[in-house]
């Protein structure tokens, strides 16, 4: 007891004890799977066999058309989400922050509620809305507009409309809250000074809001890159399983799932996972360096 007390009160040991739970979970649930994932990507794994095959999995990946399709789908999805889920939530946040908006609480709640629903349930709802049956909402709408019902989820353009709508519906509110908290941090005297100088609302947005929101924007872009590249459940639920017609909804993680879980080829699936990690890191580093969050070779100046 005495020893324990001594350790707990010691300034050297106590911090380690406090970070221990995090370090342990980091080691067990992150570092260990990462290392074993990388090792497994060089193996051929079956029920009883586990053989080293060198870079064979990666060599096959290079020739794998389906994998290339999955990568392009994932990157395209990421691009769409960034293109739509940065500007619109930012505009909504500015509107929420404005004194002219009435009933802000209601608007915020309406925007945020979708984020509280589960992806599984919202995906199923969207699947029914976009069903090719004559009675689905979207086809009712088409008939109302004087068009023929169409099989929404069988072609890329129409099904991606659903996929991106689902994503925007879910995440607009969340991103808006990020921007809103960023806006709160901007000193209101800047706006007052701008008012005195006779700035228009657009000038204020362009020269005060946008630059000072940059840290928030960088953060939101970073998590959107990860979220976009690792998207799986939305596509899985929208098509009801991992098999979309002509693989129009197949993502990198979907392909990993298909190989590892559905086809029981863990080695190949791990190679897919490693490639996903590399792509995500490359994009994120490029973006963080470009925006100046990470500075290379400038340390001395500071």
């Amino acid at each position: 007891m005495k020893y324990l007390k001594k350790y707990l009160y010691s300034q050297k040991v106590a911090p380690y004890i406090f970070v221990l739970p995090f370090v342990l979970s980091f080691l067990i649930f992150w570092v260990y799977p990462l290392i074993s994932g990388i090792t497994m990507s060089f193996q051929d794994i079956g029920f009883s066999k586990r053989e080293w095959v060198g870079i064979e999995n990666y060599a096959k990946l290079l020739r794998d058309k389906t994998f290339k399709l999955a990568i392009s789908n994932s990157i395209e999805y990421m691009a769409w989400t960034i293109a739509l889920l940065i500007p619109f939530p930012m505009i909504f946040a500015v509107m929420m922050d404005s004194r002219l908006t009435k009933a802000k609480g209601v608007w915020k709640a309406i925007m945020y509620i979708p984020a509280l629903t589960s992806v599984v349930i919202s995906g199923m709802l969207f699947r029914m809305m976009f069903s090719e049956a004559d009675g689905s909402q979207m086809n009712k709408l088409m008939v109302w507009l004087g068009q023929q019902p169409i099989p929404w989820l069988k072609s890329k353009a129409t099904s991606w409309l659903g996929l991106i709508l689902l994503c925007c519906w879910r995440w607009t509110g969340v991103n808006m809250l990020y921007f809103l908290s960023g806006l709160k941090a901007i000193d209101s005297t800047l706006y007052e000074a701008a008012d005195v100088d006779g700035c228009t609302a657009i000038q204020k947005f362009r020269h005060i809001t946008l630059p000072l929101l940059q840290p928030t924007t960088i953060y939101v872009v970073t998590i959107s890159v990860f979220a976009g590249l690792s998207m799986f459940l939305e596509s899985f639920m929208l098509w009801g399983n991992n098999d979309s017609p002509k693989n129009i909804g197949l993502t990198i993680v979907g392909y990993l799932y298909k190989r590892g879980i559905q086809k029981n080829d863990m080695g190949y699936a791990c190679a897919v996972g490693v490639v996903l990690l590399v792509i995500a890191l490359l994009i994120n580093f490029a973006q963080l360096i470009a925006t100046g969050t990470i500075k290379i070779g400038k340390r001395k100046e500071e």
């Binding site: 099989p151 069988k154 072609s155 098999d243 979309s244 017609p245 002509k246 693989n247 086809k263």
Partner: peptide, 18 residues
């Protein structure tokens, strides 16, 4: 079989019939 079925049900039949 799973490979054949998988590709027919996602891609080939859609290509031909749709």
């Amino acid at each position: 079989s799973p490979t054949i079925n998988d590709y027919f049900c996602t891609t080939v039949l859609n290509n031909i019939l749709e």
